[in-house]
């Protein structure tokens, strides 16, 4: 099928970007979206042009490295699906597809569709862990965690760190990302001990990095590839408020 592509091209952080039009004639419905971009890049390379830089790695929806805005939606039209898992059969012959990078002040563009999401790592570094050194751990079964608690913690832990929540949020808030870690660890007995400090440190770091605040529009959960619940954000608020009230 024929696809009319409008792809964001931007040389670097300091230059202005623009949409560039490309037409691909022989797109196969079985292709993944990224394979379609591969096809475009091959074509560009052969023409002596710079291929489009885009982030991707595992191409099976778990590493979280891919992620672009496709027709104005993070990871494209199919819910709970990363860009790499989106396939061209969801588009029609003759469709126009707009491809833009995730945009947020905390995600500066590196080139084209590639953005710098290291701010998410910085949020984790602020406290997204249980402070245990290798070798300190007690026998695993000495910490009992009920099936429900473990499953609930897993639901929070499933975040792949792609940043679609930030790109989707009108305020570019990383609340869903940060809260999924805060609440995963707060739900587990071994993580409860430092849950107050963790919440305060991560929330403050998130602000320092220039992310916006959450206004509970719940759009992040809708576009999250892993369907992480917005109630994590409420739990983050709870942990934060509890910590502040105690102090």
């Amino acid at each position: 099928m024929k696809i009319d592509l409008k792809v964001w091209r931007q040389k670097n952080q300091n230059t202005k970007g623009h949409l560039e039009s490309y037409v691909l004639e022989e797109v196969d419905a079985e292709m993944s979206f990224l394979e379609m971009l591969d096809m475009l890049n091959l074509k560009l390379a052969k023409q002596g042009e710079r291929p489009v830089e885009f982030d991707h790695d595992c191409r099976e929806g778990i590493c979280g490295q891919c992620g672009v805005m496709i027709n104005g939606i993070a990871h494209g039209p199919i819910k709970n699906t990363t860009t790499c898992q989106l396939h061209m059969r969801y588009f029609k012959d003759g469709d126009t597809i707009y491809v833009e990078p995730f945009k947020a002040k905390a995600f500066p563009v590196i080139r084209d569709l590639k953005v710098d999401r290291s701010a998410l790592d910085d949020i984790i570094a602020a406290g997204g862990y249980i402070s245990v050194n290798t070798g300190q751990a007690p026998e695993a079964n000495s910490i009992l965690i009920s099936h429900e608690e473990a499953e609930s913690a897993f639901d929070s832990a499933a975040c792949i760190g792609c940043g679609a929540c930030v790109a989707t949020c009108k305020n570019a808030s990383a609340a869903l990302f940060a809260s999924s870690k805060i609440s995963q660890l707060a739900k587990l007995p071994q993580g409860k001990k430092e849950s107050s400090k963790r919440a305060v440190d991560m929330v403050n770091r998130m602000e320092d990095l220039g992310f916006g605040h959450c206004t509970n529009t719940e759009a992040c959960q809708v576009e999250c590839p892993q369907d992480i619940s917005v109630l994590n954000i409420a739990q983050m608020n709870y942990e934060y408020n509890k910590a502040k009230l105690k102090k």
């Binding site: 949409l19 945009k103 989707t168 009108k170 570019a172 916006g212 759009a219």
Partner: peptide
């Protein structure tokens, strides 16, 4: 929030989610 959200999208269909 305005400061945090950076530049806008050319095509923006984020409103489907909220």
């Amino acid at each position: 929030a305005k400061k945090a959200s950076g530049s806008s999208y050319v095509v923006d269909k984020r409103n489907r989610a909220s």
